[in-house]
């Protein structure tokens, strides 16, 4: 059962990777990379249970957090041209 899950996740990773490399606009790439991170989280969680070491779930949780922060940083860069630091000029910059 875990093998089937692993193969499924690996296949979706391949499809998402194609979108990352082909993606015509930057937003396609950002979405695809975020999805790829989510797939990595799933892969590592499945891998932990497959290898009989469910402690790897902690690793998957950390990846989920990092993925989220990375996507937020990328999108902020797209929106403001920097990381939205000069918040006295724009109050919504750090939302």
């Amino acid at each position: 059962m875990f093998i089937a899950g692993l193969i499924g996740v690996a296949m979706t990773m391949l499809l998402v990777l194609v979108r990352v490399l082909a993606g015509p606009t930057v937003y396609d790439r950002i979405l695809a990379i975020n999805l790829f991170g989510t797939k990595t989280v799933l892969l590592i969680a499945l891998l932990g249970f497959f290898a009989g070491r469910p402690e790897f779930l902690d690793l998957a949780l950390t990846y989920a957090l990092i993925n989220f922060i990375g996507t937020i940083a990328v999108l902020k860069f797209m929106q403001y041209g920097d990381l939205g630091w000069d918040s006295d000029a724009r109050d919504d910059a750090d939302v």
Partner: peptide
């Protein structure tokens, strides 16, 4: 970085994988 971190996890090196993901995928991108 995320891909190589997955490889490290496969090689049973979760500590290295964690560092790679935090530094490579998180901090370096930002």
């Amino acid at each position: 970085s995320l891909l190589s971190a997955s490889l490290f996890t496969l090689l049973n090196a979760p500590d290295v994988a964690l560092t790679e993901a935090a530094v490579g995928a998180g901090v370096t991108t930002v």
